[in-house]
Design a protein around this nucleic acid. Structure first.
Lengths: 336, 336
DNA sequence: TTGAAAGCGTTACCAC
DNA sequence: GTGGTAACGCTTTCAA
C-alpha cells in the first residue's frame, strides 16, 4: 500500500507551484493542456488524493449526512435506511450512521457529535425515551446551517422537514377491514411503548371499533401478550386481532396457532411485520405495509433538495401505508 | 437554531487571544482557573463548537471508520453491522457506511471516497463481483496509514486483519449431523453465487457426503431451486437438505412443506436463515448460526486495536458457527 | 499561462 | 499566564 502524497509535494516534484497543480486538477481554463496532462499523469503516478479535511475546512461543507436511528433491529427502520442509502449512493454525499437504541442520552450525544462539523444534514427518527421525556433541546440547538429532517417518529413542535407515515388512518382502515370481513370483537396487541406512532395507531383502533364493543388492548412484552391474549380468547371469544409491531404480531400469532384459531376459521388478524416472515408464517399473515424503503427514499430526496437549496420552506410529506392482504384475512370467519 | 461561532470570534468577544481560548477549553495547566471559567461560560453562551474539519486537518485523523458492505438486506451482514456499531458507539469514533450491492464498481468508488481523508480505518466485506473478477487493486492501493480489515468474504492474497467464519467446517459438520440423524441422501441448495464462502461451504458438503452418494447440488434462483428440488425428490428420493443461504433455505422449505415431507418425517433439513424466521417456520428450521453480531464486534475491536497501535501485525480471527437445532432435525426419519 | 499569498479553524511552539 | 505565529492541505484572488 502506497503512502499518499500532498498537493504541495506533488507540485515540488513537478517543479511548478501548488496553485498550478490545484488548477490543473480542477481542470481550470487558466492552465495549458500540456501542463494539465503532466500534472494528471504525476497525480496518478504518485497516487495523489486530495485531503478531505482540507477541502471541508475550505468549503465549510462536509458532503456527509448523518442518519440517526433508534434501532437497526426493527425491519421498518432497516428498510428506511436502505431507502436512504439507495438515494444518497448516487450523489457525492456520504452517510454517517448513529444508533441510539431508543436512548435519550445516546441521541443527544449522537446529535452533538454530528453537529460538530461532521455533517451538512441530519435524518432522524426520534428515540422512544426522547419522546417520553419530551426534551428536545438537542434538536432546537442544532446550528441553522445544518438541515434537520425527522421521519416516522416526529415532534410537531420542531420546525423542520418531516416524512410521516399515516399511522392513524392505516390502523383505522385495517380494523374496519377486519370488521368488514366478519370480525365482531377485535383486540389490539402491542409492545409497551411510548411512541407517537403507537398512540396514533391505538387511536385508529378505538375510532374503528367505534363503540361496537369495549376496546381490548394488551400492551406488554411478548410473553405477557401471550398470556393475556389467551385469557381474552377464553373469556371474550374475540375473533379479530390487530397487532402494532412485529414482536406483538408474532406473539399473537403463536397464541392463535396454538389455539388452532386459524385452522378453525375463528380468527382474523392483521399485524405489522417484515414481508419475508409474514409470507412464511402458516397461514401467511396479513400486514400493514408502511413502505419503509419509500419512506427512506423520500426522506433522502427532501434533505438533498434542502442541501442544494432547491427548496427553503419546511415540507411535511406523508407516505401512505397499504394493507397487504394474506391468508389471515382471506378466510371466511366461522361464527358458531 | 443558533448559528455556531468560531474560536477566533469567541476570543475576540472575550478580549483574549485565540491561543488562550484554545488552551482554556482544553483545560491546559498554563491557563488560570478564572480565565478558564470565563472562557467556558462564554463558549456555552455563544454555542461554540469546535470545527471538526479543522481538527481533522490539524491532527491528520478523522476518528471515523468506514464500513463497506455488499448488502444490508442480508441478515448476517446486518447483524455484523449491529455488532460493529455496538462496539464503535462506546468510542469516540464514527461510522460511515457504504453499500456496494455486490458491485465491483461501487466497491471501488466507495473505497476511493473513504480513503480520501474520510476515515482512519475500513471494515470491508468484499462484494460478489469483486470476488468474481479477482481484481483487488483498489484494496492494495489503500494508503498505508489507513487500516483495512476484511471480514467474512476475504481475499487471502491481501495482507490485512481478517475475521473469518468457518464455512467449510460448519457445513461439513451440519451434513454429517444430517447423516447421523438418518439422512442417507443429502442434497445441497444455494443461490447461484461466486463467493469464497459459498465455495468453502460446498467443499464441506462434498467432503461430508464422502462418496456415500453422488453430490446433488442445485444452484440458482429460488424458483429454479423449487423446480429442481421437486425433481430430485421425485427421482432420487432424497431425505436430507442443506441450504446455504436464506433464499435457498426458504425455497427448499416451501417445497418440503408442499410435499408434506416434514409431516411424513421423510426429510431432515439444515439451512442458513435469520433466527426469527427460522423459529417461526412450521416446523421450525434448524440452522447454522454464524454469530453475525459477534463477527461484527470482533471486527470492530480488532480494528480499534490497530488504530490505537495496540497491535501491529495482521491478525486472522475465526468465529466458529454453531448448529442451532430446531424441529427440522429433531425428528426420527421415516425410512420406508 | 503561471505563481505568490491569504485564509478556512484549530493547535502548538516559543516569546513575553 | 498570555499572546503571536506557523502549520495542517487545499482553493482562490490577484499580480506577474
Amino acid at each position: 500500500m502506497k503512502k499518499s502524497i500532498t498537493l504541495k509535494e506533488l507540485a515540488k516534484k513537478l517543479g511548478v507551484s501548488a496553485s498550478t497543480v490545484s488548477k490543473a486538477l480542477n481542470d481550470s481554463y487558466e492552465i495549458s493542456e500540456s501542463t494539465k496532462r503532466k500534472v494528471e499523469a504525476a497525480a496518478k503516478e504518485f497516487n495523489y488524493r486530495p485531503n478531505r479535511a482540507a477541502l471541508n475546512l475550505k468549503s465549510g461543507k462536509t458532503f456527509t449526512i448523518g442518519v440517526v436511528l433508534p434501532s437497526i433491529k426493527d425491519f421498518f427502520l432497516v428498510r428506511a435506511l436502505r431507502g436512504i442509502e439507495s438515494v444518497i449512493a448516487n450523489t457525492n454525499y456520504n452517510i454517517v450512521i448513529s444508533v441510539t437504541n431508543e436512548s435519550y442520552e445516546k441521541e443527544v450525544k449522537a446529535i452533538e457529535t454530528l453537529v460538530n462539523g461532521l455533517v451538512d444534514g441530519i435524518i432522524l427518527a426520534v428515540s422512544e425515551e426522547t419522546q417520553l421525556r419530551q426534551d428536545f433541546d438537542h434538536l432546537t440547538n442544532i446550528p441553522e446551517d445544518i438541515k434537520l429532517l425527522m421521519f416516522d417518529r416526529v415532534e410537531n413542535t420542531i420546525e423542520c422537514d418531516k416524512v410521516l407515515v399515516d399511522d392513524y388512518e392505516a390502523v383505522l382502515k385495517a380494523v374496519k377491514h377486519l370488521k368488514f370481513k366478519g370480525a365482531t370483537k377485535v383486540a389490539l396487541v402491542s409492545r409497551n411503548n411510548n411512541l407517537s406512532t403507537g398512540k396514533s395507531r391505538i387511536k385508529g383502533y378505538i375510532d374503528a371499533i367505534n363503540d361496537t364493543h369495549d376496546p381490548m388492548i394488551i400492551e406488554g412484552k411478548d410473553d405477557f401478550i401471550e398470556r393475556e391474549l389467551e385469557d381474552l380468547i377464553a373469556t371474550k371469544s374475540i375473533n379479530g386481532i390487530i397487532a402494532l409491531d412485529e414482536e406483538a404480531s408474532l406473539a399473537a400469532f403463536r397464541v392463535a396457532s396454538r389455539e388452532k384459531l386459524f385452522e378453525e376459521r375463528k380468527l382474523l388478524m392483521i399485524g405489522y411485520a417484515g414481508t419475508k416472515i409474514s409470507e412464511h408464517l402458516n397461514p401467511s399473515l396479513s400486514t400493514i405495509d408502511q413502505h419503509g424503503k419509500r419512506v427512506g427514499r423520500t426522506t433522502a430526496k427532501i434533505l438533498l433538495d434542502k442541501l442544494n437549496n432547491k427548496s427553503d420552506r419546511s415540507e411535511v410529506n406523508i407516505i401512505y401505508s397499504s394493507l397487504c392482504e394474506r391468508a389471515t384475512t382471506q378466510m371466511v370467519i366461522n361464527h358458531q
